[in-house]
Every structure is written in C-alpha cells, then in structure tokens.
Design a binder for these strands. Structure first.
Lengths: 256, 256
DNA sequence: AATGTAATATGATCTATATCAATCATTGTT
DNA sequence: AACAATGATTGATATAGATCATATTACATT
C-alpha cells in the first residue's frame, strides 16, 4: 500500500513552495514528522510558554509574523527579531540563557515539529538539510543587517530600510513591485526598529510629503520613488536634501 | 601506515579545545581538510577581498577578533558583528547581496577552509555537524541579543552589556571572575555598540566614578560590583540612582 | 630615550528624537 | 449598528547623546 502524504501537510503552504523545508521531504518522512508534530493557529498576542518551548523548541512558521521579544526590567520592550513564512525557529538547548519570548504579532499559523524526528530527517535528507541550513544562515544575516540599521542610522533611514525588508519578504522576486504591505502594527514596528511610535508616524509623513511613498492604508504603502528610498535606506544623507528640492512641499495659497 | 594528524592542526588551538569543530574530526578528515585549506596571520585592518571570500567563503577563527563592517554612503561606519575564537564564519552564496567587509580588529589567526571538503565533513561527521550547527545558532542569537542592546538601551546600559559580552567570551565558566579584557579599541567598540567614541569614554568614566568598575589599563577593567553592573546592563534604571547614593563620589578635601 | 603619530579623553554646544499631552482613527464586541 | 477600547497621529517641550574643538595620553619607529 502506497504511503500517502498527510492531509494536514497537503493543505500547508510550506509543502507546496519548493524552497521550503517540508517540500523536500518524502511521504514517509512527512508521515513520521507529521504524526509527532502539532500545528496551531495563533492570534495577536499569543505567546509560547516556557514549558511549551521546552517540549516543542522547533517551530515552523506557515503564515503570519512571529516575534522574539525582550522586556527590560523597567518595562522597555524590544522586538529583537521577526520570523515569517518559511522560517524554522530552532530554540533547542538555549533555554539556559533566557533569550526572550516568542509572540505572534497577528494571526499566524505554525507547526511545532518534534525535535527528535526533525533532527533525524535533517541528518538523513540532504535537500532538507540544505534548506534548513540556508534558512538559519539567512536568519543570522538578517539579524546582523538589522544591527546595522539600529546602530547608526537615523529614524528616516531605519524606516526606509524596514520598508525594503518588508518588500524583500513578500514579492521577493518582482523587481519593479512598488506596493508593499506592512504586516505589523505601528507600535510593533517602532519596537522592532528601536524608536517611538510617534517618530515612526512622523517619518511616514515625511516620506510621504517628499513624494517618495504614498500611504494607501495603514498597512499598505506604494513606493513612488524606489531609488530615492533606497538611497535614504543606505544612508546617503545628501539625497534627503535633493529630494526636497525636487519636490518642494509648498502649497499655493489662493488669492483673493 | 597510520594516518598522522597534520602538524599545522596539531599546533592549532581549535584542535585542542574539545568544543571546537576541528577537535571532532578524524585524522583522515583533518588531513583532507588541511590539505585544501589555508591558514593566515592577520594584523589590525587586514580585510578579506571579495575575490578571496568568493573562493574561501568559510573562515575559522583561531585567535583574535574579526569584524563584519558596513560602510554607509556618507561614510558612517558600523561594526555589525564580532567573531572570536571558535567561530566558523560561513559566507557561502551570500555574495549576491553585499553583506559587509570582514576585517581583523587586531592580530588574529584564521584558517580558511575549503568549502567542498568542509561540506563533505559536515555531512559525514555527526559530531562535527552538531558543533557547527550550535555555533551558527550561537551566532544568530548573539546577533539578536546585540539588536536588543542597540534598539532601546541607553549608552551606559549598552556599555555595561558589552562588558558582560566580553566577560562571557573569555572566562565563560568562572562565575566570580571580575577581571575583563576589552579585546578591541575604543573606536571599534563605539562602532559596534552604535555610539560615538567620546560617549564610550564618558560612560567608562561614569561607571568608574560610581565605583562599579575600575580601569586597570585601557584594555583591562576590573568589575568591582558585578550585580550593579548586571542591573544596569539589564536596563534597571532605578539602580543608577541607588548606586549613586551608596557611593557618593565626593572627595574629602584636606584641611589646612 | 626621543620624537612623531594615532588614539583617547574632556569640555562646550547643538540637534534629533524621546517624552508628554491631547485628539483622531480603527478595530473588535455586544 | 453603536459602543468601547485600543492604536495612530499631531503638536509642544525636554534631554541624551552627537558634534565640534582642544588637550592629553599611549604607541610605534628610529
């Protein structure tokens, strides 16, 4: 009798997209992994308890955005990392040093993978190994690049950089795509790029007033001038002046 | 005829410390990897050319400190990550998006590993695989924790946090060790924690004036009050006041 | 040891962004 | 659909840390 791919996996986007982990697995591997795993629907604010993470330290993100949050002793909160579809969060054996709370920033679907079966599959399946390895390195360099944004960039530059990060996450391929959706709330965005929500708001306004972006809705923006936004994100301070000259935001007052 | 561990490896600390990658390898594996690899001595400022990294994208750090630097278009420089002994820097196939320059911050020894042999060994040797996987995850979480420091912490808190990072790197085990060596220059330190060298200097003085640390030399400090430094690093703002009260920095002026 | 150069420290200002205060908009709930 | 409740915006002010200027110290080279 032929081994059937589990129904749950058949319905999961991680199985369909060829560059994801689960798409590399054979039906037998999927059956084994699926049997010992737990999928879950999360809503904003849902967090994984320490006990849950001790038992299920490997989490695959199917959809939505998860975050790793840090709360300082006087209440300041930071979102240290974002995880999106395709990311495999591997929190094994790092519980010793407390590394933060894993919290959903909106509706999300995840699959908590059995660590032992996961490990077995990774060792046996070279393609799966490759995918998981690349994903972890991607996470590393994403974190390092985020550090660059946080270290020396100004508010406007950080926001520009974040917009490209969002753009990269979704369309990924489509070079000319200028519609970007911001998948998280302003407050979370502020906590991620290390500024205050008020400043985030002001920076959105500033980019808009310079004609570089347009705010369609709270979560959807259109980039009107990709090169200019890119230059700001890369920290070319001269641009800001130039753009201002190109688009002087003076209004013609009607005469009596 | 028995296979001899290569001389070069016998003299390398990565081979002696049991938790390092090379210590997991069999003599045969070492011979193969060693034959196709290149070790190098670096001095401060030495950087890996793009061509070098294209051919040798896997670098093992034997001693010293390497950095991943980002230069913005207007000249602002950021040190995005630090790598120290035992770290394996894997820059394979990420040359597409430019990820920064790998530069030594002082005298350092590295071993550039042949990517193909490295890959072969990792797949064949489970112990080596475990070590390299743990190291990569360690790098990821180090970067994420660094983001926490950069995002919301104040100057003094960032410096305190960095001191613990240094302490963790060297002694690692010795809980009570209060002597910490700062392995990089003030300027590099400033670029790593995202502040100006002047501010770094002022913060060292402030910690000293509060009696929390003592500056032995430029590169050696003694922590006089570990819990207080820890609380500052964790962002407990109330501490700063308390310490001030406990150690009023007034000097008794000698009377005539 | 002497000398020149680079790194660090200190003091005086300035500015970007945090903070505070008050509306305005959006979302979820009954 | 109406109502809270939560989130986002806007304006006024305060401040931590950047920047600029200068002095001091450490380090390398002869």
């Amino acid at each position: 009798m032929a081994i059937e791919t589990p129904l749950r996996c058949k319905q999961c986007s991680l199985y369909f997209e060829s560059d994801n982990f689960c798409a590399q697995l054979s039906p037998i591997e999927l059956v084994n992994l699926n049997r010992e795993s737990r999928s879950a629907k999360l809503k904003r604010g849902d967090s994984f308890s320490d006990e849950s993470l001790a038992q299920w330290p490997v989490v695959a993100v199917e959809s939505g955005v998860l975050s790793l949050q840090h709360i300082m002793q006087d209440g300041r909160k930071t979102i240290a990392a974002l995880f999106m579809r395709g990311d495999i969060i591997d929190l094994r054996s790092i519980s010793d040093r407390k590394r933060g709370n894993l919290i959903a920033l909106g509706k999300a679907r995840v699959c908590r993978l059995s660590p032992s079966i996961f490990e077995k599959v990774v060792k046996a399946n070279p393609d799966a190994h490759q995918v998981i390895w690349d994903n972890l390195r991607e996470q590393t360099f994403r974190a390092i690049e985020h550090s660059v944004d946080l270290a020396k960039k100004q508010a406007l530059e950080k926001l520009a950089s974040f917009i490209f990060e969002c753009r990269h996450h979704e369309g990924a391929n489509d070079k000319s795509s200028s519609i970007v959706s911001i998948p998280i709330r302003r407050l979370d965005l502020a906590e991620y790029i290390g500024m205050q929500p008020e400043t985030v708001s002001r920076c959105f306004r500033e980019l808009e007033s310079k004609g570089i972006i347009e705010l369609e809705t709270l979560t959807t923006i259109v980039i009107k001038n990709i090169p200019a936004l890119r230059r700001i994100a890369n920290g070319d301070r001269s641009v800001e002046e130039n753009v201002k000259l190109e688009n002087p935001d003076m209004k013609i007052i009607s005469f009596a």
